[in-house]
């Protein structure tokens, strides 16, 4: 009893609570600024609640104009859809080729020289920094309207991303397997083809499929600025206030993108099973 009480006494004398760690002041200030900026912007840009309501009405009215969809132009629309699909396929494949060639010298663990790796990575991030839509506008100036521009824009966008993700996949592999082949006296190309490619192949394939899905979406948008394909049909119909035609185009786009995703998900499942 006495022992316990002295123990308690001692504890009370000596036990100081550890100093509470300071809260992150920076985070609090950032949050405050964000909230203030939100209200400032609401005020500054005249966010008009009345128009939100009237706009909803107008939108619903437009919706009624959209049904039934006008399928009279179906030959035109389907041909344009096919073109979008082709643009996506060609752009993605060219992007894959560029990404594949550049990724190996860009990966830190197998690069012939660090400067080479640095240059390629810098080049790829430059490609990524500019959105595909802007690339399309640049190429329209250079080579004119049409699917060729779309293919180029998608190639550049896909290459920028694929160089990055391919390189990361290569850098993730166990350095031991590279060491093992180096130790046999194998040359650089042999090491890449015998050790690196078999190890990263499934990762590469899933990146390619993912990129194709994204490019399918991109290629429909690119049509809107005149780089060929179904996007142009959509813009065209909207500008002419032919909402029923526009609705049909939208349905075709949805079906196309949706089925690409369906197929690619199947493919990914298959690949998982192979491992």
């Amino acid at each position: 009893m006495r022992i316990e009480s002295t123990y308690k006494q001692n504890i009370q004398d000596r036990l100081e609570m550890p100093i509470k760690p300071k809260k992150n002041i920076f985070l609090q200030i950032a949050l405050l600024v964000a909230v203030l900026f939100f209200f400032f912007s609401l005020y500054q840009l005249n966010f008009d609640y009345a128009r939100l309501i009237s706009g909803t009405g107008a939108f619903l009215e437009t919706l009624t104009l959209m049904v039934p969809p006008d399928i009279s132009q179906w030959q035109h629309v389907l041909a344009a859809a096919l073109e979008s699909f082709q643009v996506a396929v060609l752009g993605t494949i060219f992007g894959i080729i560029i990404g594949f060639v550049l990724a190996f010298p860009a990966a830190d663990n197998i690069t012939p020289h660090p400067t080479v790796a640095w240059l390629i990575k810098g080049f790829a991030s430059l490609l990524r920094a500019i959105p595909t839509l802007i690339w399309a506008l640049i190429f329209i100036v250079a080579v004119g309207l049409g699917p060729f521009t779309g293919i180029l824009a998608i190639t550049v966008g896909a290459a920028g991303m694929l160089v990055k993700v391919f390189t990361q996949s290569i850098e993730e592999i166990d350095y031991g397997v590279i060491e093992a082949l180096k130790a046999t006296g194998a040359g650089w190309f042999s090491i890449v083809s015998q050790a690196v490619i078999p190890t990263v192949l499934t990762a590469f394939l899933s990146w390619c499929i993912l990129r194709f899905e994204a490019d399918m979406g991109e290629s429909t948008i690119l049509g809107a600025v005149g780089a060929g394909g179904i996007g142009w049909e959509l813009t065209h119909a909207m500008r002419a206030y032919k909402f029923d035609q526009a609705f049909f185009v939208a349905v075709v786009i949805f079906l196309m993108v949706f089925s690409v995703e369906l197929v690619s998900n199947r493919l990914k499942m298959r690949m998982k099973n192979i491992g």
């Binding site: 093992a180 082949l181 046999t184 006296g185 194998a186 040359g187 650089w188 190309f189 078999p198």
Partner: peptide
């Protein structure tokens, strides 16, 4: 190389004696 066949893994031992092109 885990995704390569056992035979191929042993053949890798010959890469030092081959041209880089053939090995590739």
């Amino acid at each position: 190389i885990e995704r390569a066949s056992v035979l191929n893994n042993v053949l890798h031992g010959r890469l030092g004696y081959m041209s880089d092109f053939k090995g590739m």
